[in-house]
Simulated assay, not measured.
Amino acid sequence: MSRTPQEIFESYVHAGSMTRNADALAECFTEDGVFEAPLLPAGAAFPRRLVGREEIRTAMAAYYERQVEDDRGAPNFEKSGYVLHTTAGPDVFIAEIDTVFDGGGEDVTVSLVQIFRIRDGKIARLRDYFAPDLMS
């Protein structure tokens, strides 16, 4: 049975943003899946391009291990929101996301867009567009 964009997106967010579980995140992708953050400069702390489930698993585990909560605090999932946009292509959808951080005394909203290409119910390619300075 094929998974819906909603189910795929929720699995991805739970594995990544909510639990920072690199194994679960990698399993959201096809064996040859690609995870890209094309706006990031080379050498950024967050990986710019990862190819293959195992590279995604390894690089994201290392990133999560190094990551320290910053001045923004943790994401507040109750205040955050998203809209999924389907496209004419049945294997492409877009997530428009506003993540709210409530640390540091006042809410900070970070907006981003992700483009998902799906194959067999898994992410074949994810392009994550966010401001590079968010990952300093």
Results as ranks from 00 to 15, higher is better:
Gly16Leu: 12
Ile94Ser: 05
Thr86Ala: 10
Val100Glu: 08
Ile94His: 08
Ala62Lys: 00
Met1Leu: 08
Gly89Gln: 13
Val34Asp: 08
Ser11Pro: 04
Ile8Met: 03
Glu65Val: 00
Leu84Lys: 14
Gly73Phe: 11
Ile123Asp: 10
Gly105Asp: 06
Met60Phe: 11
Glu10Gln: 11
Ile118Thr: 11
Met1Asn: 11
Pro38Leu: 01
Ala74Phe: 13
Ala24Ile: 02
Tyr82Asp: 04
Asp91Pro: 07
Glu36Trp: 13
Asp70Glu: 15
Ile118Lys: 09
Arg66Lys: 08
Gln67Asn: 05
Asp120Phe: 02
Ser11Leu: 13
Phe116Met: 06
Gly81His: 14
Phe35Glu: 02
Gly33Ala: 09
Leu39Gly: 04
Thr86Phe: 04
Ala26His: 13
Arg117Ser: 14
Gln67Cys: 03
Arg119Trp: 02
Asp98Phe: 04
Thr109Pro: 02
Val92Leu: 11
Ala59Phe: 05
Phe101Asn: 03
Cys28Glu: 01
Ser80Cys: 12
His14Val: 07
Thr99Asp: 02
Arg66Phe: 00
Thr58Met: 05
Leu50Tyr: 04
Pro41Cys: 06
Val92Trp: 07
Leu112Gln: 06
Pro75Met: 05
Arg3Asp: 03
Val34Ser: 14
Ala26Phe: 04
Ala131Asn: 12
Gln67Ala: 15
Tyr129Trp: 12
Ala61Cys: 08
Thr99Gln: 12
Ala59Leu: 03
Val83Cys: 03
